[in-house]
Amino acid sequence: MTDQSVKPGERDPEDAAPGDQAISAGDFAGGVRSYVTGLGLALLLTAASFVVVNTHLVWAPAVPMALVVLAVAQMGVHLVFFLHITTGPDNTNNVLALAFGVLVVLLVIFGSVWILGHLNHAMMPVGEMMQHMR
């Protein structure tokens, strides 16, 4: 049912799907500004990772940890500026889906490392295996 105050040809703001919002000229410019800011930050973090690897600004044994920190920051930039994952009340499902996805990925990674570690421990040493093959 439409409201009588809505003129013909105009969109009723009450009649919209979740996440489907009318975009005015100011909203469009704000959206583009958000994407450009995200792109700038992503490029800056990418350049920083190349600088960390190719210079001596970071102590050599700490380079892998610096790259992990820059990668996590890069993921944060992508989540906020491009995927628009925020902690707002309308993004609860998105945050829960992201958390579940992270849980599954961590379970697969750590489960694989655990299984491979135990397989390596249970393997026969190469010298003994060669003796049994003769």
Rank of each mutant, 00 (worst) to 15 (best):
58 V>K: 02
52 V>I: 14
68 V>Y: 02
59 W>C: 07
48 A>R: 00
54 N>Q: 10
71 A>E: 09
79 L>I: 05
73 A>F: 08
87 T>Q: 08
84 H>Q: 12
61 P>A: 04
74 Q>I: 03
67 L>H: 01
72 V>I: 15
61 P>L: 04
53 V>R: 09
72 V>E: 12
51 V>N: 04
47 A>C: 04
77 V>C: 09
52 V>K: 04
62 A>M: 14
63 V>C: 02
79 L>K: 04
60 A>D: 14
68 V>Q: 01
72 V>Q: 07
71 A>I: 07
83 L>K: 15
50 F>D: 04
88 G>Y: 06
79 L>G: 05
73 A>S: 11
66 A>M: 12
58 V>L: 09
88 G>F: 06
63 V>D: 02
53 V>M: 09
57 L>Q: 10
49 S>F: 01
65 M>N: 05
73 A>H: 02
77 V>L: 05
75 M>I: 14
57 L>G: 12
55 T>M: 12
80 V>A: 08
67 L>F: 06
78 H>K: 07
88 G>E: 07
62 A>W: 08
75 M>K: 13
64 P>A: 01
81 F>S: 02
57 L>A: 15
69 V>Q: 00
71 A>G: 11
73 A>D: 01
84 H>G: 08
87 T>R: 14
85 I>C: 03
80 V>P: 01
77 V>F: 08
61 P>Q: 05
74 Q>D: 07
55 T>C: 12
51 V>L: 13
77 V>D: 03
84 H>A: 11
86 T>F: 09
57 L>T: 12
73 A>R: 03
76 G>V: 03
82 F>N: 02
76 G>D: 03
68 V>R: 00
85 I>S: 00
61 P>H: 04
82 F>K: 08
56 H>N: 15
49 S>C: 05
76 G>S: 07
85 I>K: 00
47 A>H: 02
62 A>L: 15
84 H>F: 11
51 V>R: 07
68 V>P: 00
82 F>S: 07
74 Q>N: 10
78 H>F: 14
65 M>K: 08
83 L>R: 15
74 Q>H: 13
84 H>P: 01
54 N>M: 09
48 A>K: 01
80 V>T: 10
50 F>G: 09
87 T>K: 05
70 L>M: 08
57 L>R: 15
75 M>V: 13
69 V>H: 00
49 S>T: 08
78 H>G: 10
61 P>Y: 06
85 I>L: 09
60 A>Y: 15
59 W>S: 10
73 A>G: 06
62 A>C: 10
62 A>P: 01
47 A>L: 12
69 V>R: 01
67 L>R: 00
72 V>F: 14
74 Q>F: 14
60 A>W: 14
56 H>E: 09
60 A>P: 10
57 L>S: 13
85 I>N: 00
